[in-house]
Design a protein around this nucleic acid. Structure first.
Lengths: 232, 232
DNA sequence: CGTATATTTGAAGGCAATCAATCGACGTGG
DNA sequence: CCACGTCGATTGATTGCCTTCAAATATACG
């Protein structure tokens, strides 16, 4: 399963250069592992590979090094709701309880760092700074979920797509351009829409000159203000 | 503003008899205040009174003693998404950051107990048990939000109403009957539907004999199994 | 008991889903 | 280098579920 075990300090050194270079302050994983000297491990998943299943015991906490991950729930007939996308630098799979409440899959080839949940629990039991950090990370996920409930319950299709584009622009734009790792179906399952509706909304935004394509997943926002206006 | 200040121990004694009699184990507020001897205060709100606004500084953490509370977000044009209902025994308004992410209003006349957020923060800084409890409470809210995203993004109107009824049945049924504190509009704004759609779904369930009414807000579930089947 | 509010029910319309076909991008092998 | 095949994305036509608009009925409260 696990390919290698390396010293945390070495990993933290890597972070500055490789992970989330745009947001060095928000490397929450490193903040924890660096603080208590936990041993982190690296591991890789291929496109569409499951990382963990819904209701599975939460053995590890993960941080995306490269690639992208989707967290989702399924209904019995296959309907899927993606609760979050995890991009380089993001921590996912953190649970206060014993099991994962959503399943996680690699969207593309992805490498992660991971630490045992029990190690974090133990560290939190002796170090209030770690405990505070774990709480803050869960609270951050809750904030995102609350915003997303508003989107899913009350926004129109165009508003949802506008919100999505602004979120992705904020999280993964490099030089004004974003390379989406996920397909239209993933976007639809994140926004509570069908892939066709997502495609139509993007086409409409393209026709209005609000965004440009260089391939279906390479998008450049040409007018963030108008996108904000479409976002209710 | 605040009507009285009373000893925590006395409050905890009250809890057993008055608050959440059906779930004495899950009194998380008492677990904290009892542990570190925080001073709790009681306060009352009238029907439809605001308890705090969205993005307001989070000065207090609350527990419903009696009544009911709705937490919600608004879009600029007035569309509303209720994220959660808070019933007797529930803690709400707990934030890891400095501000409330949702607004809160009393649905009916409501009394709460509250403690200063800074007191809890301080307690969590010296007592890892308190810190762990705060994390667990936020994680519980996150779990509910994740379930609710699935409902809002992927369930049909009838499935949403069935889910709602089973949730309320679990949380506030007494002797097989539930007295809903909230109106149809609140239910609709919780489920991402209109009040008319909620009403039609309830009428249909009534016509099928799955539930009975004694007044629009007094509901008795006559067949939980069939309701579960409707819940995907 | 009367009035205001909440709920139910009906009729019509609209937005997104579904069903279906074409287009385009990418990787492979000839 | 290009033909081919596959998967993903776009576009079109139609359907349908839920919303909107409207009115009647029920409930709560002074």
């Amino acid at each position: 399963m696990l390919t290698q075990t390396i010293n945390t300090q070495a990993i933290n050194t890597q972070i500055g250069g490789k992970i989330a270079p745009a947001h060095p302050v928000t490397d929450q994983f490193g903040a924890i592992t660096g603080h208590v000297g936990l041993v982190a491990t690296e591991f890789s998943y291929r496109k569409d590979e499951e990382i963990y299943g819904e209701d599975e015991p939460a053995e590890y906490v993960y941080q995306v090094v490269s690639g992208a991950v989707r967290s989702y729930k399924l209904l019995s007939d296959g309907r899927r709701q993606i609760g979050a996308f995890h991009l380089p630098g993001d921590v996912f799979g953190l649970e206060s309880g014993a099991t994962h409440r959503l399943a996680a899959e690699a969207i593309i080839d992805t490498s992660v760092r991971l630490v045992k949940r029990t190690s974090l629990e133990k560290a939190a039991g002796t170090d209030v700074v770690v405990a505070r950090k774990l709480w803050a990370m869960t609270a951050g996920e809750l904030r995102h979920a609350e915003d997303h409930m508003l989107l899913l319950g009350r926004k129109t299709a165009m508003e949802r797509v506008a919100t999505f584009l602004l979120e992705m622009d904020r999280r993964l734009a490099v030089a004004g351009m974003m390379a989406l790792p996920m397909c239209r179906r993933d976007i639809g399952d994140y926004l509570g829409l069908t892939l066709e509706t997502v495609s139509r909304a993007l086409s409409q935004l393209h026709a209005q000159g609000i965004l440009g394509f260089s391939g279906a997943r390479q998008i450049v926002l040409r007018n963030r203000q108008r996108l904000h206006n479409l976002d209710a």
